[in-house]
Design a protein around this nucleic acid. Structure first.
Length: 441
RNA sequence: UCCUCAGUAGCUCAAUGGCAGAGCAUCCGGCUGUUAACCGGAGGGUUGUAGGUUCGAGUCCUACCUGAGGAGCCA
């Protein structure tokens, strides 16, 4: 009978026992009649130890000539060893090679360094690297945490359509799709639709992909990215801000609890994440402008910020660097924000909106607002923005049949992963990133 | 769309206008505790493409292609 099948992550439970692991050869070091194969199985890595006189000649020879990423089923005995990074080593007794990678066409990603373009071209293989696997586990944890957060608070998941008949917001560029000879577009936000489901179910959220055909070429942009968007009936801007900081705090704490080892693999400065707690600092747009102008006076910013404009990327970086927790900036001028935002009753030139900026220069990870409740004003705004009234007929209906104050926000998953993982670029936060110049693999 | 930078071996990079090289990967050999192991050897090139200047171009000039970083826009 072959030994118990287990995973490398669970191998500590089998100390002193024979086990079978099924995976791939990550690397092989050899020292004369002693082999040190490192195996990986998706859950982790473990080093095997193979003295020539401890195994059959066939097993030794099979391992000795094995190439990187060859698939193997390995039997061996688990042994605790202080020298091992994971705490355990495997005294290999037998190896079954399912496929040996050809020497004439070896695995392209070597243990040495590679350039971004090469790695992106081999993204389907790059994700096998320990760091990339750790990032994807952190991503999965963030998504699960976000869903748990809403599920535990009485929210209902209501997924909006991906194919839409018209622009949600009209400002950004959309990917056109031929829909049986009709012009359709890939969604750029589910928000308008979940405003409808919020009127049906009270507290709702959506989680899904969104598409922006913007020619953005920065470390913060993908053309296809995932958003979590909650929407709550009867919510005010204050409710939206509370929900935002609650969600972010919950996610960070969950990652520290469950994915600490992965964060360490990625090289994250965990002390910075441990400082994340409620409440988040809140400043309004007027205060932000004052701080930016002070920053310019001190020479920390290149351009003098004038009241009335939207915050640029360098502005956001400057402001968020002043705080250790995510920064909430609320009540921007209405004219730089989306048409559907409720005006501030105290100052109708301002919108009841909030942007949440992650610390350490990661910029905006959440954008939210209280939505406009008045049918008359919404119709006026649609006209002012030159949007086709016909396309928004259903959206206007929400203001005809029992309109209530309501609000919500969208959180970009990839930006959240980039911040929590301390990553340079969002392209590493999703299995197969889509950017301006990247559609393969 | 604009600005900046880059493209040389499978990969990462070097080469004053003067014989195109190193490390890794692959192959051969050595080593019983290696940690991106190490040591010795071998094979591996249309220098992104097309023109031009020059006795001579990887190097200088022009155009184009591809990519990266940033701006704008945004999550």
């Amino acid at each position: 009978m072959s030994p118990t099948i287990t995973t490398i992550a669970e191998i500590g439970k089998h100390e002193g026992q024979p086990v079978t692991i099924r995976g791939w050869l990550y690397n092989l070091r050899e020292s004369g009649k002693l082999l040190f194969p490192i195996f990986r199985d998706g859950s982790g890595q473990i080093q095997g130890v193979v003295p020539k006189n401890a195994v059959s000649p066939e097993t030794f020879d099979a391992l000795k000539g094995l190439t990187q990423e060859s698939s193997v089923i390995v039997e061996g005995k688990v042994r605790a060893d202080k020298r091992a990074p994971g705490g355990y080593e495997l005294d290999v007794s037998n190896v079954q090679v399912l496929q040996k990678v050809s020497e004439s066409d070896p695995y392209p990603i070597t243990p040495k360094e590679h350039g971004v373009d090469f790695l992106m071209e081999h993204r389907h293989l790059w994700i096998r690297s320990p760091r990339q696997a750790a990032i994807l586990r952190v991503r999965a944890e963030i998504i699960k945490a976000a869903r748990d957060f809403f599920d535990d608070r009485g929210f209902t998941l209501t997924d909006p359509p991906i194919l839409t008949p018209a622009a949600c917001e009209g400002t950004t560029t959309l990917f056109p799709v031929d829909y049986f000879d009709e012009q359709a577009y890939l969604t750029q936000s589910g928000q308008l639709y979940i405003e409808a489901t919020a009127m049906a179910l009270g507290k709702v959220y959506s989680f899904g992909p969104t598409f922006r055909a913007e020619k953005s070429k920065t470390r913060r942009h993908l053309t296809e990215f995932w958003m979590v968007e909650p929407e709550v009936a009867y919510a005010t801007l204050d409710d939206v801000m509370e929900l935002s900081e609650g969600l972010i705090t919950f996610i960070v704490k969950r990652c520290l609890e469950k994915r600490r080892a992965d964060l360490q693999t990625i090289g994250r400065d965990i002390a910075k994440l441990e400082k994340i707690d409620m409440p988040f600092p809140r400043i309004n747009y007027d205060e932000a402008v004052k701080m930016l102008q002070e920053g310019f006076a001190k020479g920390a910013l290149e351009n003098k910020f004038e009241w009335g404009g939207d915050l640029g990327s360098p502005d956001e970086t400057y402001l968020s660097a002043l705080f250790e927790r995510p920064l909430m900036i609320h009540r921007y001028p209405a004219k730089v924000k989306a048409f559907y935002m409720e005006p501030d009753p105290q100052r109708p030139d301002l919108a009841l909106c909030v942007d949440v900026l992650a610390p350490e220069g990661y910029g905006e990870i959440i954008g939210g607002s209280q939505r406009m409740a008045s049918h008359e004003l919404l119709l006026q705004r649609i006209h002012e923005h030159g949007l086709p009234e016909e396309a928004f007929k259903w959206y206007l209906d929400l203001r005809k049949f029992g309109s209530v104050p309501h609000g919500g926000f969208g959180m970009g998953i990839e930006r959240a992963v980039a911040w929590i993982g301390g990553l340079e670029h969002v392209r590493e936060t999703i299995p197969f990133p889509r950017t301006l110049h990247r559609l393969y693999p």
